[in-house]
């Protein structure tokens, strides 16, 4: 089994709903974002490259942990705090993490792993989001877990509920009959930084 996501960049319009859904479900501390929707365009967020005469280009790249089939982070972690599960989820165990940030250095995908330098802070004085999420901790690395706590309940990750553009797809990449497998068989796609040999489980339809 290899759980993965397919994101149709021709449909995604950068609305950030998936990013906020992640923030909410995982009760992310202030300023932590496990899923960020990056602008591929001009210098500023949400602005295009190009001009009227030559033409514009603007697409979006929702980016979180790529749950690589061949993760660089797990090899770098000296204590086994980050590890790949049988179902393909690259998991982060806060209790084992010693905060050395080797995984952050090893991961080629900038910004998907976040180190809590300080005690996590929140806007409200009680926990929001789902139950069963592990407590956020100071001095550990955290990141997208494909909502492991939701998977355990037979649900999809929070970012899949619901993409207003219907651009996000979820399933088992090992199952040729799954929607995700069919999509990458049928459509042109890209994975991020294929030269690093990580073989991400997040596919972007182009």
């Amino acid at each position: 089994m290899r759980l993965g996501m397919v994101i149709d960049t021709r449909r995604c319009f950068g609305c950030q709903t998936c990013a906020v859904a992640c923030k909410s479900a995982n009760n992310l501390p202030n300023n932590n974002w496990w899923n960020r929707v990056l602008t591929e365009g001009g210098e500023n967020m949400d602005c295009p490259a190009g001009d009227y005469e030559k033409g514009y280009s603007l697409t979006f790249l929702p980016t979180s942990c790529q749950h690589c089939d061949n993760p660089a982070c797990t090899r770098a972690c000296p204590v086994g705090a980050t590890s790949k599960r049988e179902d393909g989820v690259v998991f982060q165990d806060y209790d084992k993490c010693i905060g050395c940030r080797m995984c952050v250095a090893a991961c080629p995908y900038n910004g998907v792993r976040i180190f809590n330098w300080e005690e996590p802070e929140y806007y409200l004085d009680f926990a929001l989001g789902d139950k069963d999420i592990p407590a956020h901790q100071k001095h550990v690395v955290e990141k997208c877990t494909f909502c492991a706590h939701r998977l355990a309940q037979g649900k999809t990750p929070a970012c899949m509920v619901l993409c207003p553009a219907r651009a996000r797809f979820w399933g088992d990449l090992d199952d040729p009959e799954s929607e995700v497998s069919k999509l990458i068989n049928k459509r042109k796609y890209k994975q991020l930084l294929t030269d690093r040999g990580t073989n991400p489980s997040v596919y972007y339809l182009v």
Partner: peptide, 22 residues
């Protein structure tokens, strides 16, 4: 967002600014 975007989109995430980010 922009720096990550530039790196992903343009230069292939060569500059690792993870510490800066955090």
């Amino acid at each position: 967002l922009v720096s990550a975007q530039n790196e992903v989109g343009k230069s292939g995430l060569t500059r690792r600014s993870f510490l800066k980010t955090s």
